[in-house]
Amino acid sequence: MTRRTTLGIRACTWVWLFMMGLTLTTYLIGQFTLGGLGVSLTVLAFALIKGQMVGDYFMGLKRVRGFWRWPVSLWLFLPGGLIGAAFALVG
């Protein structure tokens, strides 16, 4: 296995573990029935971070330049912004 592949796999392994950790944290927040705007936006932020990591590392978009670098990030930003705004407007 080439060094580049090994490094790529190592990075993705850390990303996978990090995403599992964020998921567990999100679940525990739900278990403690924590609510409110701050908590909801924090949970949403966790989801957007995980989404960006899937795009960057798993889909491999981190290495892409130009137009195709951005659609997944834009997609996360738009629905993420809408969801955040809808929850913020309720308070």
Partner: peptide, 22 residues
């Protein structure tokens, strides 16, 4: 692989939105 990652990506937003955020 790209398609499968998309399926994962969508669930990552769906999970907190539907099950956790209140």
């Amino acid at each position: 692989a790209s398609y499968w990652h998309m399926v994962d990506l969508v669930w990552l937003i769906l999970f907190p939105l539907v099950y956790i955020m209140r």
